[in-house]
Design a protein around this nucleic acid. Structure first.
Lengths: 341, 341
DNA sequence: CTGAAAGCGCTAACAT
DNA sequence: ATGTTAGCGCTTTCAG
């Protein structure tokens, strides 16, 4: 039988209360008893039983990581990496993360995640856009909540975001520094805050570079930013704009489709058209040529939100923090100096 | 305050024991009381408190998913997908999975995962090769254990494996059906059971096709099966064997390196050399040409091991099962009929 | 600085 | 078929 706090108490000749205090690093315990208890703990290889502790203290040591099915499966490596980043950081903080996937059409009255209703978590991390209904429902549980890669309408929660605006600027700066003057933008779902911000960055950088923005050079009405939509966006773009020398794709997935179309049209990357993506997904590396992109530190995003959560859990909360995680230009082979023509 | 079993009992005018019995679908409860209790549960929106239940019943509703850092990070999407497969299946079975990453040099005496020592899991799933030391240490906890993608020395545990042998055969059959008679094999870490089995499949299929096996056509001494080692393996292979028309790489990662070398040597894929990998990783799709490969249903692997675990947990265990998950030939553009020469 | 004792919410054995 | 009751192992007042 695994030892309990009682066994430790007996062995150290103290009460179980004292053992509990030692475990929680209570300072009023004298050095000697503390040592004695710690020795007993070690000798017996004692570890408190999580469920018992949970019942008594209402702390479970678990956190929920909520992401919609859609997000998780469609841009799977992305949110998986955020999850893993949070997971790694959680381990430092002695937490476990319960991955909780919900439907993206969740609405009031739907069954809530089991780990929440059974109060098996101490806090909730939302990753990516989640339905407002589930946020409202979960607010009733009065658990600390934090958001990553999504900016909830109610602003009173800590949130970790990608610096999409800066990323968009960096992409365009890179291209304009290479001499490009006809820089297009392709995107899907321009309603999405992240994509909108990248678009803003695109426009501002264009302006900074003394280039004029033309709506004809922006394909922003694709349904969602996936490979196939990159292909069709590129098709439409090139049909109407023969003079494009560089394309900024709102993400790598679309960029892959764009590259495919360019190749099929007999356009060489980067000799004829430079192409840059956003996200730095693995597949970009295997492209021919390897894709220049804006690197998003996904693990970092997860780690950061976990740190915010830990702060809340330890009541170290200042005001709800907003963290913008910086992105980084990754130059590979799909971008090059504009051809002198 | 969230309702407890007491509140339900009061509202339904029964004892808490009755409520508990209803919750556990005990059949001796009369239809009427069952209805009454269920109504009270619904009205109050009652959910048992997991920690309390855990303390009383010693069941936590959690499972540990243990994988080494090495495996998880090196072939990250692979084990991530197994994890996700297990996770999806777990949800069907009302379990949560605690992802638990350990060092691959774990040895007796090292700190064990917290979720285990705190008895916060009901069972353990091992994914990929894990150090024997941790298996021994964890055996003391007498938790149900199951393995996926690794065949532990002690054979008394349920295990889920890829049908690597069949995969190796299928790859070679595919190539020989295309007329290839000089089919090479490249691998790293031939000690690894999975790779060894693929190699066996290669040899047997060769024999079946009436082709002779030559050790010169097998590069099996690379340190581990990664991209860079595929590159160097291909280099050595092509140096000594000018007549190779097809290469079976033990996995996609190496195949990517192989393809890179082939291209740099001015050899066209598949016109000059056909190339097939194993695993079906995403990157293979983005290669030019897209990589033919043997598809491994990673989600399925995870789901299968979770199902075995659920069976053990419900005492539905027959003898420890071994399941071989079938693989599937995926024909893409990197393999083609041999050139008539 | 330490101990006694009262729960936390639930399960399960035992009564009835 | 349902109720009574004794824990499960821990935290946390409150005394001393």
């Amino acid at each position: 039988m695994t030892p309990t706090i009682k066994d430790v108490a007996q062995k150290a000749k103290v009460s179980i209360a004292t053992v509990s205090l030692v475990i929680h690093n209570n300072e009023k315990i004298s050095y000697e008893t503390r040592m004695r208890v710690n020795k007993a703990i070690k000798d017996l290889n004692y570890h408190p039983f999580r469920s018992a502790r949970g019942l008594a203290s209402r702390k479970t040591g678990n956190l929920a990581f909520i992401v919609t099915e859609d997000h998780f499966l469609r841009s799977e490596p992305f949110y998986t990496h955020i999850f893993l980043g949070a997971e790694f950081e959680a381990r430092q903080n002695e937490y476990y993360i319960l991955l909780t996937i919900i439907r993206s059409d969740f609405k009031q009255g739907d069954r809530l995640p089991r780990c929440i209703v059974e109060r098996n978590v101490d806090g909730i991390i939302f990753a990516g856009k989640v339905p407002q209904d589930i946020i409202s429902c979960l607010e009733k549980y009065e658990l600390p909540m934090a958001f990553v890669d999504y900016y909830p309408p109610a602003e009173n929660y800590p949130v970790v975001l990608i610096d999409n605006f800066s990323g968009g600027m960096q992409a365009v700066q890179h291209l304009s520094a290479l001499g490009h003057r006809h820089i297009a933008f392709v995107a899907g779902d321009i309603q999405h805050p992240s994509i909108r911000d990248r678009f803003q960055g695109y426009k501002v950088a264009l302006e900074n570079a003394g280039l004029s923005y033309s709506s004809k050079m922006s394909i922003i009405d694709e349904a969602y930013p996936a490979r196939e939509n990159g292909y069709s966006a590129a098709k439409r773009l090139l049909r109407d704009n023969k003079n494009v020398t560089a394309i900024f794709s709102c993400n790598d997935a679309m960029a892959i489709g764009v590259m495919q179309f360019l190749k099929e049209s007999g356009l060489r990357v980067p000799e004829d058209v430079s192409l840059i993506g956003f996200d730095d997904v693995d597949a970009g590396l295997s492209l021919d040529p390897p894709l220049s992109t804006i690197g998003v530190p996904k693990l970092e995003l997860g780690g950061e939100v976990m740190r915010l959560m830990a702060d809340m859990l330890n009541n170290k909360v200042k005001s709800p923090k907003k963290v913008l995680v910086p992105v980084e230009l990754i130059k590979r082979k799909s971008t090059a100096e504009v051809k002198i023509s």
